Simulated scan of single mutants.
Amino acid sequence: MADQHQEPRAPGNGAANPTMLDLDALGRELAVSIPGFGALQSATKFSDGQSNPTYLLLAEGKRYVLRAKPPGQLLASAHQVDREFRVLKALHGSAVPVPEGLYLSPEQSSIGRMFYVMSHVDGRILWDPALPDETVEGRRAIYDSMNRTLAALHNVDVNAVGLADFGKPGSYFERQIARWAKQYRASETEKLEDMDWLIDWLEKHDACDDGQVALVHGDYRIDNMIFAHHGAEVLALLDWELSTLGHPLADLAYQCMQWRLPNRGNFRGIGGLDREALGLPREADYVRTYCERRGIDIPQDWIFALAFSFFRIGAIIQGVVKRAQDGNASNPEKARQLAAAVPLVARMARDLVNKGE
Results as ranks from 00 to 15, higher is better:
E7R: 14
A15L: 11
A16W: 12
T19G: 10
L23W: 07
R28P: 00
E29T: 08
V32Q: 12
I34L: 04
G38N: 01
P53V: 13
Y55F: 15
L56Y: 05
V65F: 01
R67Q: 08
R67D: 05
R67A: 03
R67C: 04
K69R: 15
P70S: 11
P71V: 10
Q73A: 13
L74H: 03
S77C: 07
V81R: 11
A90E: 04
A95E: 14
V96G: 08
P97L: 07
V98G: 03
S105A: 15
Q108L: 12
Q108V: 11
M114C: 13
V117I: 06
S119Y: 04
L131E: 00
L131M: 05
P132G: 06
T135C: 02
D144R: 11
N147D: 09
R148V: 03
A151T: 03
L153E: 02
D157Y: 12
A160F: 04
V161S: 04
D165N: 13
D165M: 08
F166G: 01
G170A: 10
F173C: 13
F173V: 01
Q176F: 04
A178F: 03
R179N: 10
Q183D: 06
S187E: 06
T189V: 15
T189L: 15
E193Y: 10
W197Y: 13
L198V: 09
D200K: 09
K204H: 14
K204E: 15
D206K: 15
D206V: 12
A207W: 13
D210S: 13
Q212G: 09
H217A: 13
Y220N: 06
R221A: 10
I226Y: 08
A232F: 00
V234D: 03
L237V: 15
L238M: 10
D239P: 09
G246P: 00
A250M: 12
D251F: 05
D251Q: 11
A253R: 13
R260Q: 11
P262F: 02
N266V: 15
R268Q: 15
L273E: 04
E283A: 06
E283H: 05
D285E: 14
V287M: 04
V287Q: 00
Y290A: 08
Y290S: 03
E292N: 07
R293V: 00
R294Q: 04
G295K: 05
I296K: 01
A307I: 07
A315H: 01
V320D: 03
V321P: 01
V321K: 12
G327S: 06
S330W: 00
A335G: 07
Q337Y: 07
A341H: 03
G356I: 11
E357H: 13
